[in-house]
Design a binder for these strands. Structure first.
Length: 414
DNA sequence: TCTGGGGTCCTAGGACCC
DNA sequence: TCTGGGGTCCTAGGACCC
């Protein structure tokens, strides 16, 4: 059997963890740049605040608003995941707030699930829902039911319990069926997950939704097609991109931003011991300004041989930027993607390439060590700029990094 | 005024090979 | 009149996930 454990209103719950005055209040967490709503407490959902709406459109009366604080959420996530790992030798961490667990089918699964919930509640203080079923897609469905019903735990362990759950589940709630497909399915009279499994054939699904649709269809019928990936496969690409706090038409601003994204991306892949074969740069104007002409260039360059060298990566990104930049536009967002990642110790050199010099490798190692110890960008290439950065993010409402930063740890006065 | 960031997989079509 | 058969690789775009 497979369990899907999912934290309730995760980001909002993390905020309330160290700010008890938020408990019982409508809490909303905003995306980077304080743009739109990405998480809501139960109370905020009850007020009818939708997911994804721009922050300026919501009625903020009586609502506690926070900027996103990923240092905090990541740390809390790690605590939850380590507890769940105690319940099964095989765990797949699927996202920051949920994981799959492989469970034996000859134990009392309901008792185990309640035990997980109680342990996480006691040791971390976060509420979770647990869905248990024979396949991942059904475990997702059971988790949906666990939340929807308020029971917190739901188990699909018989034909009857499966049929009943699927009959009560709208197609658009199925894991793997998104907006486009659910619209089409409903137009064909397929309303529920049960309709999806019983009203249409495998061939029909293959034709309309390709092989991925067929997998979902089989999984809902109880046949496992999506395996538990307890060994994380290596990343194939990584991206760093940001919307700017304000638009800019200055090449110098874009250079600083792009250099900073390129540096972050390089640090990420070095941490994962990977090297990139390609780099993609993109930047664009404000898509929401329908009244203005848009400009959205992008370009991809292959490295001479795979690299994770910050300096090479920054230089390549800046060369592309200078070639694509046009001064007559106001830019709102930029990003750098490193692709075709390969293990750094298996890099295949080209005939005329001797690889990175040992001195350069030492320099990068030293920079990573200093920045790890003293904070991001303590030492950095000068092209990232110093002083004010008009393009920087708005993040005015961030709570403390209570668990990862000594200066921001909670103070308790007795 | 104001709208996030980071991933994966699949398919079709083009370019190319012999 | 009439022009093969069998592959691979790459890319863009779409759909999905959180």
């Amino acid at each position: 059997m497979i369990a899907l454990v999912d934290c309730n209103n995760f980001y909002a719950s993390c905020e309330a963890l160290f700010q008890p005055k938020l408990i019982g209040k409508p809490v909303v967490v905003l995306s980077n740049n304080d743009g739109c709503v990405i998480a809501r407490s139960a109370e905020a959902k009850a007020l009818g605040i939708p997911m994804g709406v721009p922050a300026y459109q919501i009625d903020t009366q009586g609502v506690e608003i926070r900027s996103s604080n990923f240092a905090l959420y990541g740390d809390i996530s790690g605590r939850v995941m380590r507890i769940l790992a105690r319940f099964s030798p095989r765990q797949e961490i699927y996202s920051i707030d949920e994981c799959f667990l492989d469970l034996p089918d000859d134990i009392d699964l309901r008792t185990l699930a309640h035990d997980m919930r109680a342990t996480i509640r006691r040791e971390v203080g976060i509420g979770v829902g647990v869905g248990i079923a024979p396949t991942k897609t059904l475990a997702k469905a059971a988790n949906w039911k666990a939340k929807k019903s308020g029971a917190g735990v739901w188990v699909i362990d018989s034909h009857k319990s499966r049929q009943e759950l699927l009959a009560s589940m709208p197609v658009d709630e199925i894991w793997g069926v998104g907006r486009k497909h659910s619209k089409r399915l409903i137009s064909w009279g397929i309303q529920t997950a049960l309709d999806f499994t019983e009203k249409v054939s495998e061939v029909w699904i293959q034709e309309k939704m390709s092989i991925t649709g067929v997998r979902t269809w089989k999984e809902l019928r109880g046949k496992p097609c999506i395996l538990l990936e307890d060994i994380t496969p290596p990343k194939k690409s990584t991206m760093v991109s940001r919307t700017f706090g304000t638009g800019t038409d200055r090449l110098n601003d874009l250079e600083e931003a792009v250099a900073s994204f390129a540096l972050s991306a390089a640090e990420k892949i070095r941490k994962d011991k990977l090297a990139a074969n390609t780099i993609t740069l993109f930047f664009h104007t404000d898509f929401h300004r329908k009244d203005r002409e848009q400009y959205s260039p992008s370009g991809t360059t292959s490295f001479f041989s795979p690299t994770n060298d910050s300096f090479t990566i920054i230089q390549t990104a800046l060369t592309m930027l200078r070639g694509l930049f046009r001064p007559e536009f106001l830019y709102r967002k930029a990003g750098v993607m490193l692709g075709n990642l390969v293990p750094a110790d298996e890099v295949q050199l080209t005939l005329f390439d001797t690889g990175e010099s040992p001195a350069r490798k030492q320099l990068l190692l030293a920079m990573d060590a200093v920045n790890y110890r003293f904070g991001k960008e303590t030492v950095k290439p000068a092209v990232l700029g110093v002083g004010g950065k008009p393009w920087k993010l708005k993040q005015s409402l961030r709570s403390g990094r209570f668990t990862t930063c000594w200066d921001e740890i909670v103070e308790v006065r007795v």
